[in-house]
Design a protein around this nucleic acid. Structure first.
Lengths: 355, 355
DNA sequence: TTGTATGCGTTATCAG
DNA sequence: CTGATAACGCATACAA
């Protein structure tokens, strides 16, 4: 029904061979200027476009890279994807995005499909359900280029791009402590994720450094990363309903922070008067949501860029890469010295802390 | 470097011909059970996957559909994409997403690339910059399957999926009028977009039906659909700075509504006490942002689903489709009967209006 | 300077 | 029941 023009069509129409046309189109020096002109003009007129599928088959590469993330409706990831696109675009690669929706099974399906030769490499951030990584190990062992970012598979020897989650969490917790809060809860994503572990460690360290005893009962793991609101709401409710309830929460993710805010507000808590909240979030809306809220922002765009550069390097390297790097970017803590924050009875120490 | 196993490899290893292996793998009845078993087990063991590129070349189709939207970091579109995926997924199609970032030029590039045979059809929502549609007309005339959704190209004879923008805008405006506002401004996207035109008409009709004179000076077009915050802020500022300033705003888009809210709040306006606001938005956050805010929600997910079904129908139809349909879905106006709204001096009429 | 033949991985057609 | 061959669109080694 839709039959695009091919090199063969041009050859037939012009009484040439396909190879001559092919060479003329790619400006080979061994074609006479007249023939070249003839072919190129004809191609232009009929709007010839080389068939990328045929090219892929021939060159054994598709010039496209696959992205596997949990959700694009998450500011961190949509920003990261913009970074990925920005690099891929001017390196001649196309970007195929797929969502796991935090499901292990869909992650496996997506990875298998993309890797079975429709992309040249993969940029991956694990789903929160993923606690085994055989599907990546298999590919990796066969030499298929993979770069992990954000939620990484520590065990696989390849490039990884992350932020300093430890420090980010440390600073967030410290900021709450500095603002006078003492019973600080921690709401985070699935326990086995690299980011969860690191953020938990940062939280613990900050407490320890300020002489605050860790209370395991103040920690909540949300296995769906905040995607399932009920799960998060339950966590927040169980915290606020405690006999000796926490006076602040450190939330470790974009969706988590927004959902915490939501749950707290709809339960009648004012922030920061009634309860403190600092979270990881890349949403441009958080400051609107709560003008007094401080947030840890991740360099998502840069992360996408770096990961893509590394992946393309992997793809295009003739020899296997043996020295792998774990690139660590820094987060930024945006604190607000709003009047609301000062209105609390806690001593509010307004300072712009940047790690 | 990464060399996946092929049918040829299996044939060689098992001392068979490629055709036998091929048939065995697809369970052809004309292969003996023993051979079949042998081949299938070998393939399983070596994790054979057919090369989708070779299949595409042979079948002259890629079993994938392209999506061209302005931004994925927009709730309307990320929800629509989820709808697209949900249908495509279980019809055996893969989804390739590309963003125009509201740029005409990038839209053209994306469309050209996708259409030059790496996808079987296209789902398109125009960029706000796009005011000429030759790139689509060319493709469409050649029989390439395209379905438009949301921001459609009226002139092209194909399937289109939209919401009843007229009615949605009418109801939003009416809701403001019913709440006692009389000078209602309209902040919308680029003037030439189908959605802008229809929403503008709905706004005008609601005013007319309630005996309110239209004031052209209360209308603002934002050519970048709210993506460029400065543009929107300028629009809001110029409205609120008017000698006889509007007492309410109807904003016609997701980003526009959020940005309006932002601009109004940061200029010290309380909603709805100081100024009324109703907008199109699919963000799950708007109610958090302003608990008293009413919004027009679009059935984005369903829209993606319907558009995808139509596209697949187009792709798989043997004969050209001649009867095109414009599917119109209905929006929903979510009104909040919050105490804040009642606190206004305006007579607040709380009713659940559903169009 | 141009043409012929081959192969990328797969399946369909035709022979055996 | 199985094998050889051609074709999908393109690029290239090799011939002419």
């Amino acid at each position: 029904m839709y039959e695009p023009i091919t090199i063969k069509d041009i050859a037939k129409a012009l009484g040439l061979s396909t190879s001559t046309v092919s060479r003329a189109l790619r400006g080979s020096y061994e074609i006479s200027p007249e023939t070249k002109k003839l072919v190129i003009e004809y191609a232009e007129q009929y709007n010839y476009r080389p068939n990328p599928i045929a090219l892929s088959l021939k060159e054994r590469r598709s010039r496209s890279i696959g992205v596997v993330v949990c959700e694009i409706a998450n500011n961190f990831f949509s920003q990261a994807i913009n970074g990925i696109e920005s690099i891929a675009y001017n390196r001649g690669y196309h970007v195929i995005i797929s969502q796991s929706h935090e499901s292990y099974e869909r992650e496996v399906v997506n990875v298998e499909h993309l890797a079975s030769r429709s992309v040249d490499g993969l940029l991956v951030s694990l789903s929160s359900e993923t606690d085994q990584i055989e599907h990546f190990r298999n590919l990796h062992e066969k030499g298929f280029p993979i770069v992990f970012f954000d939620r990484i598979a520590e065990e696989i020897e390849t490039f990884k791009v992350v932020v300093d989650n430890y420090k980010g969490a440390y600073n967030a917790t410290k900021h709450l402590i500095d603002s006078g809060y003492t019973r600080i809860a921690h709401v985070t994503s699935a326990q086995h994720l690299s980011i969860s572990k690191e953020r938990l460690e940062g939280y613990k360290a900050a407490l320890a450094d300020h002489g605050i005893a860790l209370e395991e009962s103040l920690i909540r793991f949300c296995n769906h990363g905040g995607m399932i609101y009920a799960e998060l709401e339950e966590a927040v409710k169980s915290l606020t309903a405690m006999k000796n309830r926490p006076d602040a929460i450190f939330s470790a993710g974009d969706r988590l922070t927004i959902s915490c805010l939501n749950a707290l507000k709809s339960n009648g808590f004012r922030i920061p008067e009634d309860i403190g909240l600092v979270g990881f979030s890349n949403s441009p809306l958080v400051e609107l949501l709560s003008p007094a809220l401080s947030v840890v922002k991740q360099p998502a765009f840069e992360m996408g860029q770096v990961a893509t550069e590394l992946l393309i390097q992997l793809i295009e390297s003739k020899r296997p890469v043996t020295e792998f790097e774990k690139v660590v970017l820094q987060t930024e803590l945006f604190t607000r010295d709003s009047s609301a924050a000062k209105a609390t009875e806690k001593k509010a120490k307004a300072k712009k802390a940047v790690n």
